[in-house]
């Protein structure tokens, strides 16, 4: 029964994605069960099935081994009952899938937000214009006062930002649970480690309402910090964030010059 092997491979693949990944993930982040989101899982499975079928049917033997039994069920006059049953099973499966799509649910609609949306070329804060393309953190060059600036940045952080982003910088401050999107996790390699300081400056300065629409500005609870902090304070916080997490900011060619 050559057909069993691909079925087995697909089943193992499914289990790995459904249980294996969350299991490993739960070891990395205790207390969570990081499932593969359904949207991704569907695509994964599509290609697992497609790939398995491909490498099982490249040879004539393999092809016959898989198509043969299926064709047999549909055409062998001796297998009338089996044919009937399998046709019913396939039909019921289809009906089940259709039902999943039309059944009434209270699942919230899926909303997508772009985590790193495109920044504008210039941004206005404190009545001034900043060109994000070339903007650099002016305090980074000040090596003599670096430690002092970092500490002052930390104080700004703990008096303003920490309530959401948390003292572990994991985006889990005392009030994080009430917010969606969750506050940014700065330790993660996917956030500030990917960004230039000018990008971070823009995100802090203009907050949630300053986001373009693909990043759902109506949901973000990030305050418009240039209403509450000074330019220098924001640059200090940025120094602190990179220093505390050990990440270094990205530098574009325009900024390097």
């Amino acid at each position: 029964m050559k057909i069993l092997k691909p079925i087995l491979i697909i089943a193992v693949g499914y289990l790995l994605l459904k249980v294996g990944i969350p299991f490993v993930g739960s070891k990395l982040h205790p207390g969570t069960w990081p499932v593969v989101p359904t949207s991704v899982l569907k695509m994964y499975m599509f290609f697992v099935v497609a790939g398995t079928l491909l490498f099982s049917t490249f040879s004539e033997d393999g092809y016959a081994g898989i198509v043969g039994p299926v064709a047999d069920i549909y055409t062998n006059p001796k297998k009338g009952l089996l044919r009937f049953v399998s046709i019913m099973i396939v039909g019921s499966l289809g009906a089940y899938v259709a039902y999943q799509y039309v059944k009434p649910t209270f699942d919230a609609p899926v909303e997508l937000r772009s985590i790193h949306p495109a920044p504008p070329s210039t941004v206005k804060m404190w009545g001034k214009s900043y060109s994000l393309q070339t903007l650099k953190n002016p305090l980074r060059a000040d090596k003599a006062n670096f430690a002092k600036n970092v500490e002052e940045g930390g104080i700004v952080f703990f008096q303003n930002c920490f309530f959401c982003h948390g003292d572990r910088m994991l985006g889990k401050g005392p009030f994080y649970q009430g917010f969606n999107p969750m506050p940014a996790n700065f330790v993660d390699v996917g956030t500030i480690a990917q960004l230039t300081e000018s990008f971070v400056f823009w995100r802090i300065g203009t907050g949630g309402p300053g986001l373009p629409s693909e990043a759902t500005p109506w949901l973000s609870a990030m305050p418009i910090w240039h209403h509450l902090l000074s330019e220098e304070q924001i640059w200090k916080v940025i120094l602190f964030l990179y220093d505390y997490t050990g990440h270094s900011p990205r530098v574009t060619a325009a900024q390097a010059h």
Binding site: S39, K42, M43, V110, L112, S114, P212, S213, E214
Partner: peptide, 9 residues
């Protein structure tokens, strides 16, 4: 149907 729709500004 498989990708989220983003309407450009």
């Amino acid at each position: 149907f498989g990708l989220p729709l983003i309407i450009p500004e």
